[in-house]
Nucleic acid binder design. Structure first.
Lengths: 332, 332
DNA sequence: CTGAAAGCGCTAACAG
DNA sequence: CTGTTAGCGCTTTCAG
């Protein structure tokens, strides 16, 4: 490490411009009452010195940190990096910083992370709760200190929630598969406790009830986490049984497709595959996937948490089904 | 939003425990000189009130924010979330927070993000620079203010760098492929300006020189970013030409494998594929991949940036080749 | 239009 | 062993 150059303070600027620090503060904050001559001088000196202000001191005084906490259940799940990116971008535009915490799917860890973030006095907290039920408690606790908004996943009915219309998404997928001649459906990768997964499963059961009463029997739970090999049990339940499969994540879908291919099952001829999130995995491997409106999610949740009057559709934001090779064409 | 509960300050604790704020501060900081009777009372009151201290005020006083900035070139690249996770975890253990910024592969944006982070007065900055050459400037600038360490990617020779031994990694991969009977090599996904990619390419050329002089002709640049379809030109240059292919990322490798399969080329029989990063993509799809010691990278970079005397191997940390189906067995 | 001064919550001299 | 006080850098009354 070399020697660190100390940042100029407001006093340096004041001294150099031969005015009081109050004046400097006013000029730099763009507060009207300031003489044009003085104004220019202050601005010039500030620029010369490279004065940038001290966010910490400002925060202490303003009781506002211009930074926001984001807790994700697992940054390793490719859906979240994309969301994080949108959120970070939006915050940057607002001049706010992003404090990120990863709960690693663990409710205890999540609570610890939230508290640790709150100690840093963020202006607000965005959280995608790890567990549908058990995350509610920490959300309530956090809500006593700062505005909290739940994004993508939800746990507490007390805090606002911004997510997508899972029901509409599933309906669209089923319709698409049905239009392609598929009549036997399966739902792969259900993760208990994950609110999005539960919402999708509910919708799946509802929307297949009429056309395929057996579909509710073909629900395959995620056992091993989202990585690891595809269980043989899944393949046994699918091959020869279903011709239209909905998968909760691109990653699982890709693994499933590989495993099916290895068994000689052809995608999409024998089985059509549609997954969720439309991450770069889906794009790179020609997987049909349900795209989430990430920018809208980011903007709405950030707006909401800042107390703005953002319109949030009651059923959630609309998704887009991106049809690619894995569910393309018609069956047989 | 409901009413927000104000956090208790140190004065509240002092008043309630009937001592001075100085005593509270001392007790809570575990500074010795404090009467056992008073000590207990303070601790009890603090607990009752749920006093947690104010990180902002503490930062202003201590000139230390206990938080660290991390700038990644693209959080959407699956390698980085894993690294971020390790870093966040390590920081949490140290009681520090993580301010994340995404440069989106854009040097200008990167500079803006770095400055914005510095304004927040972090204790240190970790950066994985977007561009081998053009990121150097902002690193130098940052270095004047806080300790800076480069992780994974590098740009400036002035700031410390923590990364892996790309040369050793490539050597191991080539040896593995060679042992499997592969004799004609290709390097896919080279990204100019990305220091890791450049290091790997250098090593590739060096380590294939003896056994396959033509290898240097089979270097395929990443043109479209890491998503998007695989260019036909890649396939033309590989099929019938190479039997051992090294790919710079799991994502590209998966896309490439799909495209090769679609052409009737079989993996690993016709072509063995080994990629980099061993992300969950590789695990999920049985791809051979070079694993990076993320925890070591995280710990070393965080240690270094804190001025600790962390041993960093001069050639970089050793990687591990994880052999899976895509390069398994022997040729033909 | 500008300056002096209070004070955000905390820690660290310094006194007693 | 404990209390008083200065002050981190800033914004914002309040005076002038």
């Amino acid at each position: 490490m070399t020697t660190l150059k100390p940042r100029p303070t407001i006093r340096d600027v004041a001294r150099e411009a031969d005015v009081s620090i109050a004046t400097v503060s006013r000029v730099l904050s763009g507060i009207p009452g300031a003489g044009p001559e003085v104004r220019d001088r202050v601005l010039r000196v500030a620029a010369e010195l490279g004065y940038r202000g001290d966010a910490i001191a400002r925060s202490l005084r303003n009781r506002r940190t211009d930074s926001l906490g984001l807790v994700v259940p697992d940054i390793t799940n490719p859906f979240f990096p994309s969301l994080v990116q949108e959120i970070e971008q939006d915050l940057q535009r607002r001049g706010s910083g992003l404090l990120l915490a990863d709960a690693q799917g663990d409710v205890e860890l999540e609570a610890a992370r939230v508290r640790s973030l709150l100690d840093r006095r963020l202006d607000a907290l965005l959280i995608s709760p790890s567990d549908r039920d058990r995350s509610a408690e920490i959300i309530v606790e956090a809500r006593e200190q700062v505005p909290v908004v739940q994004v993508d996943r939800r746990a507490s009915d007390d805090a606002p929630y911004v997510g997508v219309d899972h029901d509409g998404a599933i309906a669209e997928v089923i319709a698409h598969l049905h239009a392609g001649g598929r009549r036997h459906f399966a739902f792969v990768g259900y993760a208990a406790g994950v609110s999005t997964s539960e919402a999708r499963l509910d919708a799946f059961i509802r929307h297949t009830a009429d056309i395929d009463p057996m579909a509710a029997e073909r629900i395959l739970r995620e056992e091993t986490g989202s990585d690891g090999p595809v269980p043989d049990a899944w393949l046994d339940s699918i091959v020869g049984e279903a011709d239209g499969v909905i998968v909760t994540s691109d990653l699982i879908a890709i693994a499933l497709r590989d495993a099916l291919n290895a068994r000689g099952t052809r995608i999409p001829e024998d089985i059509a595959l549609v997954s969720f999130d439309d991450t770069l995995l889906a794009r790179a491997t020609n997987l049909s996937s349900v795209r989430q409106p990430l920018r809208q999610l980011a903007q709405a949740s950030i707006g909401l948490v800042h107390g703005e009057d953002v319109p949030v559709p009651p059923k959630g934001f609309a998704t887009t089904l991106v049809v690619r090779a894995s569910s393309g064409g018609t069956q047989r």
